[in-house]
Nucleic acid binder design. Structure first.
Lengths: 189, 189
DNA sequence: GGGACCACTTGCCATTTGGCAAAAAGTAAG
DNA sequence: CTTACTTTTTGCCAAATGGCAAGTGGTCCC
């Protein structure tokens, strides 16, 4: 829980009472490896925060290939904003890649906090904007570069992930086949 | 100006007085083709809205290649949020691809509106989140697909752009060379 | 130890895409 | 119409990547 509060306080100030209110609504959740936190077609009912572990957001294209949109590491929010805010079905899956510990808030609790805590909406706004901007900054360089460069960028962004998750997931994030990625890794060393 | 108000009202309600306040602060700007609205290294001082025309956001990679991150069409906001909010230098250029007409707000006026109009912060939040989500939804499918599929997706997203802007910009958006794009187009017909 | 799984690597060849330069087509000005 | 300029297409070949299948190596379980 402290991790979440620490994270939040980077975006704005809260007094002890407000922090207590937030902590009160938070629920700790464990998610075993490979389990889904959210599935396509369902509505995101929770605002989550990754305390420990790694998850990925993925979907299937019209050829049935599994595509990893991005990875969520420790100390990041884990929420499908479009689905959570507008209550529309998610188009993507969120899957634990390692055993994960999360903090989650139900939508109702989250809205109560927004109405109760002055300035909370502002902090949440900053948090979500930052998270969205980060995703864009991470994804957009991947379009223009060749596979080797993409892999090197991946290693810069997620240095700790390379040895924690299967190669096939990294390949599906980089938009290449697992074989190609294996060859690329061989050439880099 | 009506276009902007109409756009805003899709995200929340405002009374006539509030609309007048907003209109009051707005400045109409014309941007000729090829001119820069924002340059890398400078700080975004304005919140913009594209009334007519098309712009692109681009940057240069470490090989000196020009990369187009995305296109901004009519009836979309045009603002580097990271730069505008946190007053950090922009890493990208924003360039008019056709003659453009914009509505812009200075940062000071924008902040006055945020303080004056109850609920304006909430509307702005929705607008910016939606814009960021849209960018992610448009960019991320480009990573995983081959060039032909990327081009077809581009045509779905920006059907009106194909004949309005040079091929080289589309290629730099799709992450392929202009020659390849030319060949791809030939094969599709 | 022997299987049964996985994840990863490698070999072979087909296909896609890039790099470069020339040709063709389109556009604007005189 | 001619010229100058820009944009797009094309040809040629090299390099990158994909598809498929087999091989290698590791782990877990009995």
């Amino acid at each position: 829980m402290e991790a979440f509060i620490e994270y939040v306080l980077k975006f704005g100030s809260l007094n002890q009472q407000q922090i207590a209110l937030i902590s009160d609504k938070a629920t700790e959740v464990e998610l075993p490896k490979d389990a889904y936190y959210l599935e396509a077609g369902k509505i995101a009912r929770q605002f989550g925060f990754m305390v420990e572990g790694v998850a990925r957001v993925c979907y299937y294209n019209n050829k049935g290939e599994e595509i990893t949109k991005y990875f969520i590491e420790e100390n990041n929010i884990l929420v499908n904003l479009e689905s959570f805010d507008y209550e529309i079905p998610s188009s993507a899956y969120v899957q634990a890649m390692t055993d994960c510990r999360l903090i989650v808030f139900s939508k109702q609790d989250w809205q109560e906090l927004l109405q109760t805590i002055v300035g909370w909406d502002n902090i949440v706004h900053k948090i979500t904007s930052k998270a969205l901007l980060l995703k864009i900054e991470r994804i957009s360089p991947l379009v223009a570069e060749d596979a080797t460069t993409r892999y090197l960028k991946f290693m810069e962004i997620y240095p700790s992930l390379a040895n924690r998750i299967p190669l096939s997931y990294i390949a599906s994030y980089l938009g290449i086949t697992q074989s190609s990625l294996s060859r690329i890794r061989k050439n880099i060393r």
